[in-house]
Nucleic acid binder design. Structure first.
Lengths: 184, 184
DNA sequence: GTCTATACTACGATAGAC
DNA sequence: GTCTATCGTAGTATAGAC
């Protein structure tokens, strides 16, 4: 073969990286296959050596992103680490940089509209994350509630036009979550 | 004029209704002008007698939807009404029918990516809603936190593949919010 | 105001050369 | 594996008839 097996893997990784970034920034449906490939210096036609359709790429992006979210946010028996994760998650830098942030607030609606196989994947990783939080919090219910609140806070903050209000949303959620954790 | 002034208003309303519905169901960017017009029995070309661009329609949809959300969810000095609103918001029927539900979970990401004028509009109505809740709850912070949590719970639930988990997410958020309200 | 027709661009996807 | 070229469709938007 004219290209090493490693080259294909590397190209695939570059494509996944670049696609995830642009999807979180601009939405997956609004970016074309041509644009995705051009972003990594390749032509549009080369796309189909890696994925048989754009939908298949979306599934791979979601899987990869949510696995990464679990790595970043998952905790084990460490309440302080959870607090630090929350602080980082509910930060202005996260609000202002969806392209490097968590896929759940950025792609949530698109995942919700995608086919059952993708949603099954999403469910798997979301549950893993919830379970890790539930173990630390010693409450299933609280873990789901806090997970929802974090994602919601980012969605809300990103809709707002003024930075001060965005900060208010983030701080409010962080404060109320802290209260919930303390009183649990 | 061959068409009454009222006819234009009625057509515009039908278009807004239909567009809101399909945007909340399938995303605004994924629906074409042609499809939107065909849905109300008109041709694509007729669109531009009502809006000068698709973006202008999006601004109108957002304004209309968020005003409606405030009407539905806004409260005044009535803690019980807020509880009932939350119960309804955090219901399976809301999860399963984005097309008739709140625009914030369904279009949040798209609003976040839209131009500052749209986000300014969104901010206005979101703040109105938050303020009405804050008055009842006697806490600005709690109002923002609960608002975020409600929207997040819907985003999360809609991503999940199995109904039992969706119910768990809804119930968890409702229960934890109830606790927060009771203890405030 | 709505229609048909059209211009122009972009989309997802495929075929064949290298 | 990547390229160029291309097919077929669909996108936004405009022009002119009614």
């Amino acid at each position: 073969m004219r290209y090493s097996a490693n080259h294909k893997l590397e190209t695939r990784e570059k494509l996944l990286d670049s696609s995830s970034t642009s999807a979180k920034k601009s939405g997956f449906s609004t970016v074309g296959v041509d644009g995705l490939m051009k972003a990594i210096g390749l032509s549009g036609g080369a796309f189909y050596s890696h994925f048989s359709s754009k939908d298949e790429l979306f599934a791979a992006v979601v899987e990869r992103e949510l696995r990464q979210s679990l790595e970043r946010l998952g905790v084990d028996q460490d309440r302080d680490k959870l607090q630090r994760c929350l602080k980082h998650y509910l930060s202005m830098s996260h609000v202002e940089h969806p392209e490097t942030g968590c896929a759940l607030p950025a792609l949530g609606a698109e995942i919700a509209r995608s086919d059952p196989m993708v949603r099954q994947q999403a469910e798997h990783w979301i549950c893993e994350l919830q379970e890790s939080w539930a173990q630390v919090l010693e409450s299933d219910s609280l873990a789901w509630a806090i997970l929802s609140q974090c994602i919601g806070a980012l969605v809300v903050a990103r809709m707002l036009a003024t930075a001060e209000l965005q900060q208010k949303v983030l701080k409010s959620s962080y404060d109320e979550i802290s209260r919930q954790i303390a009183g649990s």
